[in-house]
Amino acid sequence: MRIVMAGASGFLGVRLTERLRQSGHEVHRLVRHPATRPDEATWDPAQGRLDAPVLSGADAVINLAGANIGAHRWTARYKNVLRASRVDTTDTLARAIAKLPDGERPRTLLQGSAVGWYGDTGNHEVIEEASAGTTFLADLCRIWEAAARPAEDAGTRVVLLRTAPVLDRQGSLLKPLLPLFKLGGGARIGGGRQWMSWIALADWLGAVEFLLEREDVAGPVNLVSDVQCTNQEFTKALARQVHRPALLAVPGPVIDLVLGELAGEAQRSQRAVPGVLRNAGFSWTYPDIESALEAALRAQPTFTR
């Protein structure tokens, strides 16, 4: 396939580009600087600028663009950055796809989203048909996904990748935790009974490639593990992997003080399950937290671009 990717320089984009090229696909990267390589094309999503011919003849478009959710405290200014970095890119791509005539339009748009769509689900399992929650992240996901509608209305198959935190030693979940756990400072958050959504990197990559080729699947898809775990189970499993105790608990007020509004996400219970992937016959390599953490800590970082 000929694939055009936005967000190809990010953590997931770099690894997905490598995976797809190893599978024989041709990947072209959308970049915001002047293009310097044959596999690059320049765009400016903040201004809605993308020449539709860049997408002409592509089999698929993959959009993983968006500022890092956990990189900063959620000030009003950074919330605007989070929204704009997702909505502007998605809207620009979807409208460019819609402008193309039949026969030149990409058949598929794999559009980034997140399991933050569901908000706090308590002990209840939620599949893709569940409505959006009422948190900031849920509202962000709602407008993010809606921005892809012009492509869907034009006849392109749109798959909404509701991604959970991805487990890899270089990923945004494990990277900041590993030094603490290796020093014996690992701790559950609050009571630890809240459910966590997550997915192993290898399974995320496999699921995206699976969805790229499954033309019978469209709409939201939960990219999550097949076996859920609580925060306490995650904490104990990670401590076992680094051979250190994890006897501490971080009280909610302390998390609030350190992280601000973002702390609410760390304390919410979210039990998203992969209804669509299960029904489509996808097979997980690391479906449970123990095997996923073992693989994540064993893997060596790659930075192929």
Rank of each mutant, 00 (worst) to 15 (best):
R214W: 00
L178Y: 14
L161E: 00
F210G: 10
Q170T: 15
C229D: 05
V166G: 11
V224M: 14
P251N: 10
G191V: 00
C229W: 02
D203V: 02
T156S: 15
L140P: 09
V242L: 07
F210D: 11
V227W: 03
R244V: 08
P176F: 09
S172M: 13
L211M: 09
R214L: 10
P176E: 02
V208S: 02
D216T: 12
P179G: 06
A164Y: 07
A154E: 02
H243Y: 10
A239N: 14
L140S: 14
L167T: 05
D168G: 07
G219P: 04
M196Q: 14
L178F: 14
E215Q: 12
L183Q: 07
E215I: 04
E215D: 14
I189E: 05
T235D: 01
G206Y: 07
M196A: 03
L178A: 13
C229F: 01
R162V: 10
L248M: 15
E233A: 12
N231G: 08
T230G: 05
D226L: 04
A148I: 05
S197A: 15
T235Q: 07
G206W: 04
F234S: 09
F234T: 03
L201W: 09
Q194D: 10
R162M: 13
Q170P: 04
P176C: 06
A239K: 06
P176T: 11
A207G: 08
R149W: 10
A239M: 09
R193E: 12
V227E: 15
R142L: 15
G155H: 12
A249Q: 09
G192N: 03
A237N: 07
T156V: 08
A200M: 01
V227K: 11
L178H: 14
S172I: 05
Q170C: 09
L167M: 09
A147W: 11
L248H: 14
E215A: 14
L205C: 04
D153P: 01
L212E: 03
L160D: 04
R169T: 09
R142E: 05
G155W: 02
G190A: 11
T156M: 00
R188W: 07
V227Q: 14
R240A: 15
L180D: 07
V158C: 00
